[in-house]
């Protein structure tokens, strides 16, 4: 049992899980929708608010600033994105960057395209940016990019400094303003080079971790990745981070890659729907407007079930395809 919390000061204890941030947001939301929540019951409203924060559904349809505000919010968003769209993975569809961007914007209307592009760059190692990607590859890259955004930006600066031969000790953690000064950093310059010395890169990143407290991938994972090669390129490193099972496990949003598309409950639900469809097509067609829409929409899962085997093979193939661009 973690007993450290008893030795923290009040402020530290409250800050650890962002209690005041959520309380403040709860009050803000309450003020924006006073009338509704008064009828619902204010205490009940607070209870529901915190219940949804705990379950992770609180970030649905919220503004981007809120979604990325805490580590818990980011993890919840990644989890929900996976839950909502894993049928895409099952169908084996390959989607392009802009299509993933549209999917993300269904959950968070002002989700920035840049974030999606950065994630796509990890998968595609920057060449052929309009190339379609399989769901799993994109998902794990997106997870790393979104969850550790600030950390990765700092690594980009370090990498750039190492390439240009600057002393790593003078590396400064970029603030939002200094980031804007290096917008092209993540794009052209970095990939053009072959890489930097792994051990030097590793020690710089370790020093960076000290400054980031908890918001960085586990150090052992970083070491593991950098031990394997003498020379490491920026996107090679990010790709390895994205594929590292330990890091994904620590974030806790996604299952292992093998279980990503495994969802017996949803399958059951779909089977049920399909059997309903085949038993009573007449009753469905005679129902009113929204009822007519339903069977149309459910038709695609049916196809996916019948062609599950073939699709899985396809999906595997696509993974290899996108993987191969790594080399």
């Amino acid at each position: 049992m973690n007993a450290g919390r008893f030795t923290l000061t009040v402020d530290e204890f409250l800050a650890e899980k962002n209690v005041l941030f959520y309380l403040e947001d709860a009050v803000n939301q309450l003020l924006q929708h006073k009338e509704e929540y008064i009828q619902f019951g204010i205490v009940r409203y607070f209870a529901e608010y915190f219940r949804s924060v705990k379950s992770g559904s609180h970030i649905l349809f919220r503004e981007f600033d809120y979604v990325k505000a805490t580590a818990h919010n980011r993890a919840s968003f990644i989890h929900i994105f996976w839950r909502c769209f894993r049928q895409i993975g099952k169908n084996g569809d390959l989607l392009a960057t802009m299509e993933y961007s549209s999917l993300l914007q269904l959950l968070c209307p002002d989700f920035p395209v840049e974030m999606v592009q950065k994630a796509a760059r990890i998968v595609l190692m920057e060449d052929a940016m309009d190339c379609p990607m399989c769901f799993a590859d994109f998902l794990y890259a997106f997870q790393i990019q979104f969850y550790f955004e600030e950390f990765l930006d700092s690594i980009a600066v370090i990498y750039q400094d190492l390439l240009s031969g600057k002393s790593p000790n003078t590396v400064i953690v970029p603030t939002s303003t200094s980031l804007e000064m290096h917008p092209q950093l993540a794009t052209d310059d970095i990939a053009a080079q072959d890489g930097v010395d792994s051990s030097l890169f590793c020690s710089c990143i370790e020093a960076l971790c000290e400054r980031y407290k908890h918001e960085h991938p586990a150090k052992y994972a970083i070491k593991e990745i950098l031990q394997h090669s003498k020379c490491m390129s920026f996107y090679g490193f990010l790709m390895a981070l994205a594929k590292h099972e330990g890091i994904s496990h620590n974030i806790g949003s996604l299952p292992k890659k093998g279980d990503l598309l495994f969802d017996p409950l949803m399958d059951q639900e779909l089977e049920k729907l399909i059997s309903q469809l085949t038993i009573s097509p007449a009753s469905n067609s005679s129902s009113s407007g929204p009822g007519q829409k339903e069977p149309l929409r459910k038709a695609s899962p049916r196809k996916s079930l019948q062609h599950r085997k073939r699709i899985e093979i396809e999906s595997d193939g696509s993974t290899e395809e996108t993987d191969s661009s790594e080399n």
């Binding site: 209690v19 959520y22 309380l23 205490v43 607070f46 209870a47 915190f50 705990k54």
Partner: peptide
């Protein structure tokens, strides 16, 4: 240990 869950239960 879980302040958010605590607040949910409390309210």
């Amino acid at each position: 240990e879980d302040p958010i869950g605590f607040l949910a239960d409390h309210f």
